[in-house]
Design a protein around this nucleic acid. Structure first.
Lengths: 181, 181
DNA sequence: ATCGTATGAATGAAGG
DNA sequence: CCTTCATTCATACGAT
């Protein structure tokens, strides 16, 4: 394996042959490859609170970022979609992992303590502190959406699954099939 | 091969310093190093037909595998993602390589159509799902598309990333605040 | 040490 | 919005 360069190069320069792409000579240019500057600026915008830019905003961002390399509006659109989704996903996984760690830590104790600690994990924290640095009025969408997020009722379902393992120490017999949810 | 380097790795996260190396059990390290037991169990699950575990399944698997060593749910997620992708990739490579790789017309070069054709039409004769050694319960991807019970939105806790870069990168003043367009 | 491969991690792009 | 796929980057590890 590993000769992935054989064929399969959409390169074709089909991208309207526009501005000099950041794909070095011979590099495959099948998809957008953001430059570090572009990533940095996009990240800054995200940190500023922008999560779901409107079409106009996307267009504007794309136009300005095109200074640093080839970019299209859809790239910006996808970037925000992915970044938002993955941050949320990451957060979700991490929180559950922390919970698992706690479960494993004192797996033999009452569940009251368990839930108490759970509640401690989710400490509220603002992420929009930079919002005031420069007043973006483009929060029509992102803002309302953001405020929609609430911490109520986290994972009760996740806490429902049973963990009856931990007793078998020697036999790798694990019942990993528990997808009846 | 190997023309991809070109020193252009975004490498932002750069988590945990490069020199990964062996991290015993429980040590912080850059990259998950699955134990043989973990790999075995994951492989068993895969061979049993599990290909795209749901969030809950990922959680359960991760929790139970954590008995054999440090593991996070994202590791399980990535493992299945990669395993499935590479299986398919290998399969495709073989089919393309074994067969006549040149008679194939290059009619797949059309922006978004490319993927669609790849996914749906590019399989002439070989089977699609060959991994059904014994029926388990979680044969996913065959169209189940079961409803994921989304543990809804925890709070916005600890959304901090590793916005580490931004040290001395020249900041060419871009006005990304597209107030109103 | 070098190289090649296997594989963990990430992310662009879609689909639904 | 959510999940999934394809591709790529980065690294651990064995063979040379």
């Amino acid at each position: 394996m590993e000769e992935r360069m054989s064929g399969f190069c959409i390169t074709k320069a089909g991208r309207g042959g526009g501005s000099g792409n950041n794909c070095g000579a011979g590099t495959k240019c099948g998809r957008w490859n953001p430059t570090t500057e572009q990533v940095k600026l996009l990240t800054d915008l995200f940190r500023s609170g922008l999560r779901t830019p409107s079409t106009d905003e996307i267009q504007n961002i794309s136009t300005q970022l095109s200074f640093y390399g080839k970019i299209e509006s859809k790239n910006v659109f996808y970037w925000f979609q992915n970044h938002k989704a993955r941050e949320r996903q990451k957060r979700r996984r991490v929180s559950v992992d922390e919970k698992d760690a706690m479960i494993r830590r004192d797996d033999r104790f009452s569940s009251a303590r368990y839930f108490t600690e759970i509640n401690h994990v989710n400490e509220p924290e603002r992420v929009i502190e930079t919002l005031q640095l420069f007043p973006l009025n483009s929060f029509d969408e992102a803002g309302s959406e953001k405020f929609r997020l609430q911490a109520n009722e986290c994972n009760e379902a996740a806490a429902a699954f049973s963990y009856k393992f931990g007793t078998e120490m020697d036999r790798p017999h694990l019942d990993l099939r528990l997808s009846f949810v």
